[in-house]
């Protein structure tokens, strides 16, 4: 027997009675507040870590290692500057994310998310690579002055461990980029699907 759309509608209506929400409004409000707080905390956590790194670097440069060489000063500026640039980007990213309005029409909402992920794509490309290069160049600019303080074996150890740390860091960045690029492709696919007739 062929199914008619009215039969489908009746079946759907019959199921309505079995659908009951198990959550009461006070639990939803509590969960909503929790979600809001945890989202803000996660976003601020990234920025806070970067701020702590900059402060630690500044404390080290100003209080512990008072570098004399011009090359070292340029290195200090490059290292701190690249992290400050990253902080600015994270804050801009948070601002973009906050502007996404879930009560917009689906196509408009999808476009807002698409703009956000396209912005993230730009960051992950040229900007992140530039930041890593600036930071690394800045770090190695300190090496000549370090060589006056540390024995050669320790200097080699410091430089090699930096490479190892950079590789581990790059691996995590790469995984994050992959996740976001998958999401970007998914958003693009949904956009095409929404516009399809």
């Amino acid at each position: 027997m062929q199914t008619e759309f009215n039969d489908i509608k009746q079946l759907w209506e019959k199921d309505k009675t079995s659908v009951q929400n198990s959550l009461d409004s006070s639990t939803i409000i509590k969960l909503a507040e929790q979600k809001k707080r945890s989202t803000t905390r996660t976003q601020l956590a990234n920025v806070s870590i970067l701020v702590v790194v900059v402060l630690a670097l500044l404390a080290y440069f100003l209080l512990v290692a008072k570098f004399q060489f011009t090359l070292s000063h340029i290195g200090e500026v490059l290292m701190c500057g690249s992290i400050l640039l990253r902080i600015a980007i994270e804050l801009a990213s948070m601002f973009y994310a906050k502007r996404i309005d879930l009560s917009e029409a689906a196509l408009k909402n999808n476009d807002s998310i698409l703009r956000y992920y396209s912005f993230r794509k730009k960051i992950h490309g040229t900007v992140t690579i530039t930041i890593i290069i600036f930071y690394s160049v800045g770090f190695y600019m300190l090496t000549p002055e370090f060589s006056h303080w540390f024995p050669l074996w320790l200097l080699i150890l410091i430089d090699l461990s930096y490479i190892l740390a950079a590789l581990i860091f790059s691996y995590f960045i790469r995984s994050a980029i992959r996740r976001e690029m998958t999401a970007l492709n998914e958003i693009k696919r949904l956009r095409e699907d929404l516009l399809e007739q």
Binding site: L102, S103, E104, A105, A106, N109, N110, I113, T182, A183, E186, I187, L190
Partner: peptide, 19 residues
Amino acid sequence: TWIYRITVNSCLNYLRNKK
């Protein structure tokens, strides 16, 4: 309409986040 919009957008986002 407003609730439907949020429902639709939440569904689409949920799928993306928890693919």
